[in-house]
Design a protein around this nucleic acid. Sequence first.
DNA 1: GAGTGGTCTAGACCACTGC
DNA 2: CAGTGGTCTAGACCACTCG
Lengths: 249, 249
Amino acid sequence: MFVLKYDMAHDSPTFSPLYRQIRSLILRGLESGEWRPGEAIPSESELALRFNVSQGTVRKAIDEMAAENLLVRRQGKGTYVATHADPRSLFRFLRLVPEQGALSAPVSVPLECWRAKAGQEVARVLGIEAGAPVIVLRRVLKFSGKPVVVDEIYLPGDVFQGLTLELLKEHQGSLYSFFETRFGVRMIRAEERLRAVAADRASADLLGVREGSPLLSVERVAYTYGDRAVEWRRGLYCTAEHYYHNELI
Amino acid sequence: MFVLKYDMAHDSPTFSPLYRQIRSLILRGLESGEWRPGEAIPSESELALRFNVSQGTVRKAIDEMAAENLLVRRQGKGTYVATHADPRSLFRFLRLVPEQGALSAPVSVPLECWRAKAGQEVARVLGIEAGAPVIVLRRVLKFSGKPVVVDEIYLPGDVFQGLTLELLKEHQGSLYSFFETRFGVRMIRAEERLRAVAADRASADLLGVREGSPLLSVERVAYTYGDRAVEWRRGLYCTAEHYYHNELI
DNA sequence: GAGTGGTCTAGACCACTGC
DNA sequence: CAGTGGTCTAGACCACTCG
């Protein structure tokens, strides 16, 4: 392991403090699959030994990664790789909350899944060549049996090879936990753009509202390790009995 | 200063680690106005001396408060009380971004300001008695001269005594920086509920869109120190040329 | 150069988990 | 009980800002 000690590194052009270098090393372990979602990473003291730094430095690296939801600390047990299989992480990306009643997990109903070639815009967003293979997926999200969201999802074909409607229907749980276990793709961050739009005919029918009704349009680009965009989606949310919840801090 | 050392406190029912106690003490200084927005708080070493703890413990307390945007660290200079007068903090609460072109600060145009008595709902949200005095404020937010947002804002009357339309018109800058300097009320956190709605006649006219056009409804409750709600507002955002930007982490 | 925050270390002890 | 993360300390040195 080649780690630059602090006082040796400050004249380097790519200088970063020790704990950031440790962070990168741990990140590499996550990316490479050395430690997989849900598993424990080595203890702080073991990592300190392995990387030849003090435990406090490892601790600071892990602190940062825990704040980014990459790792989860459990006192007395260890530090674990975060996973979308954890139900607590579901509403981290789905900010829709029922106006009344308790928060319940929605059910995903896949409608269609087909292959296509990336258009200009999708290619730009996903960082692939125009014309490269993409997988397009349409689905409905039901809360308490009622359809509330229609999603159209674009995925890079090379990353999600073998994705079919049948596979999707088999899987229980969130799409991201499915991506994680089936394709080894872990979403760690996303950016959303929200707008109010009028319902088109097809979406209106699916959601059981009148054509032209106001819907919340949510465009999302989701990123995996290394800030690589691996999903573009557009959701239309019916906000008659739900709202999009956001905390400003 | 009465600080419980870690090993003396673990059997207390209200036990919290030292750095959280320090955090509370600093917070008290912010609330009381001992250190005001934009000003520097004492250095870490001075606080460590004052509170009779190590600098590392003070540091951890400040770390947390900086992560919450209560304090701002500036290496080599000191630690400052965060302020809404800082233009960087403007888009922390206003998540609206133009579809094209650069991010520019909007202009607030106050329309009306009147006294009223709190209805059931406003009273509940603001944590005051129904019938207690509230101030209602309507305004438009213009981006590059175009009206994009209509806001209706409810404020507890006792906290914002003396607020008038004239005062509002005098003030340059964001509403929250105005609240900060004029009333000593600092917003530190907010919760928003977003929905898509159809434009009513009045709002449509103000925004220059057709009645019934889809608008983004943004309800916000803003909190000051001690999780005290001191503002309820509802904004209608025209998202034809702007979008609401949200980062999911 | 003095003062501030930022990094790193070594060591002690506490709190929690599970065997 | 051993092993893990969580807290706290004391001290050293680096990086930045400003007079």
